[in-house]
Design a protein around this nucleic acid. Structure first.
Lengths: 334, 334
DNA sequence: TTGAAAGCGCTAACAT
DNA sequence: ATGTTAGCGCTTTCAA
């Protein structure tokens, strides 16, 4: 078995409770015993048993992270950020991939909740109703990541601003008729992006062609959407996200339409591979690592200061910025 | 606080231990009490406290997964697979990104080990020596993923066969002079791949130009390597992995060298984005999800049947296969 | 500043 | 088949 606190106590010539205190950050113990205890602990290779500690303190030292799809580099990036920040704060992170399935999401919440101090939830597609249902499963604090909902703490990016920037960029390049390929209707992110697009459309500086919504995958009806874009007479297209943008570019290329020469393309998210593609993708950069850190920090604040009933929880909105790369170019009149 | 086993016991009119037995899969309890207990538990929303259970059983119900870089879709994919399989077996997974840093890897092992039943370790770069050092940190079983080492249980892919397939494919397309851009020297995977390349080189059917090794990143000295490839007179190149292949293609494109018309490119791993690139990448497909499942299964076998001292642990080698896409084409004589 | 003692919620002997 | 008892390793009163 393991080295227990008792053996350390014996080795250091003190009682178990003194060992506990000496090892605790804010524990009341003299400098001398502190040192002796730490020495003994090190020598014996003592590692406190998290279960025993958790049983008594009610804190596990764990965080849960639920994401819709780790294969999407956007969420892998978030996972990396969350994990790094949590580690810095002495917490380990359970990761659960919900496969965008509500059932699995409920499952994950049910399973994870009792083993963690709080849950970070990336759930683009759940309705507010379903979200509230999820919360019924636990008393543990929940922080929403890249989606917001009244009554929930959240960290999001300013997609509205991002979309506006994208259209402004295209307008500056001379594009006037711009297609927008939206993402899954009814998701929070789709609504935000659409709002940004609408805002620009209302100014009348550019004309927007809505090409419907596609699944946020490479092959999610994208080939069809690409053809609609081509038929629309638009000289540029803004895609729901980078993956969709790649899908469009792939189809454009197959059709002999060159990017950016014949068609400018703007993505959203700025996943790691966007800079590696040929051409490198112009995209709205969403702060992934930053968002992850902010979410973990917000979670810790909630852990330290439990929510006052009735108080609206904190919502943090992070800025986005446009990264101009090689997939957009000046509009050359036919 | 939470609903405890005692309240369920009271509600069901039985003792706590009976509740425990009734709820346990292999527990000895009559059908009637089983039902009554389950009903009471459901009604009260009882969730067994994992800490309490772990404290007594010595099993946490958790697995640890250490990967070098979640931003690499290869490892994100593995993470997804591990997590999915573990969930199916009732275990949650801690994920830790070591950033290819030995210090962080040691840290992760030290921190994770006490909270898990076993650790799945993806560590391409650690030496056997360092690996054995890592193992000193814990008695918990360790399974190596996509790397093997004598004395360790492991699940790997047959990269040697994969490389051979790649070269055979290029040979069949008429290529005779083929460049190889290797990965980080001294890593297990680099050795395996190199062995496959060497094996083919010895047959004399193709001529191999070794272009040294690069970091497995998009911008890891790849632009330089690309130029060397171009100068070498090779008509095709095999890259350490898909990311490196993308880097090469990007440079080729910038230099006006068309892929696959002027240069055929083969990657390795078959990450999700390889099929999305333009052109889609021909690559050696490494079974990621399959490997992840196999590793979890192997871990569970070790959990059930602890290793007999002195017995060489199990090593599982999974087949690879070549996925032919658009980045390779027949060699057209100058 | 330290020690003794209690007990977190659960499971596993041991009785019955 | 079920209840009783003990105790996993730790933290935290409570005394001293």
């Amino acid at each position: 078995m393991q080295v227990t606190i008792r053996e350390v106590a014996k080795a250091a010539g003190v009682s178990p409770s003194t060992v506990s205190r000496a090892l605790a950050p804010g524990g009341t113990a003299s400098q001398r015993t502190r040192e002796r205890v730490r020495a003994a602990a090190d020598r014996l290779g003592y590692r406190p048993n998290p279960s025993a500690r958790g049983l008594i303190t009610g804190r596990t030292g764990h965080l849960g992270l639920i994401v819709p799809d780790l294969l999407n580099p956007f969420f892998a990036d978030i996972c990396k950020g969350v994990q790094a920040r949590a580690r810095g704060l002495g917490h380990a992170v359970f990761v659960s991939d919900s496969e965008r399935d509500e059932g699995l999401e409920l499952d994950a919440m049910r399973t994870l909740a009792p083993q963690v101090d709080g849950v970070l939830l990336c759930s683009p597609q759940l309705s507010g109703e379903e979200l509230r249902g999820l919360r019924e499963l636990t008393d543990k604090p929940i922080v929403l990541l890249h989606r917001s909902e009244p009554g929930f703490a959240s960290v999001t990016a300013d997609l509205l601003e991002g979309m506006t920037d994208a259209l402004t960029h295209l307008h500056a390049l001379g594009h006037r008729r711009i297609a927008y390929v939206g993402g899954p209707r009814s998701t929070w992110a789709a609504g935000e992006r659409a709002a940004g697009i609408e805002e620009m459309a209302r100014t009348g500086t550019v004309e927007i062609v809505h090409v419907g919504s596609v699944a946020p995958h490479f092959d999610g009806g994208i080939t069809g959407a690409a053809d609609v874009v081509l038929a629309s007479g638009a000289s540029a297209v803004v895609a729901f996200n980078d993956i969709v943008a790649f899908g469009l570019i792939s189809r454009f290329t197959a059709r002999g339409v060159r990017v950016p020469d014949d068609m400018s393309v703007v993505g959203c998210d700025d996943i790691a591979l966007s800079g590696m593609a040929a051409p490198p993708l112009t995209t709205v950069s969403v702060p992934k690592a930053h968002g992850a850190r902010a979410a973990v920090d917000l979670m810790f604040r909630m852990l330290v200061t439990p929510a006052v009933d009735g108080a609206e929880p904190l919502r943090r909105v992070l800025p986005t910025h446009l990264v101009v790369r090689g997939s957009t170019a000046a509009y050359e009149r036919g």
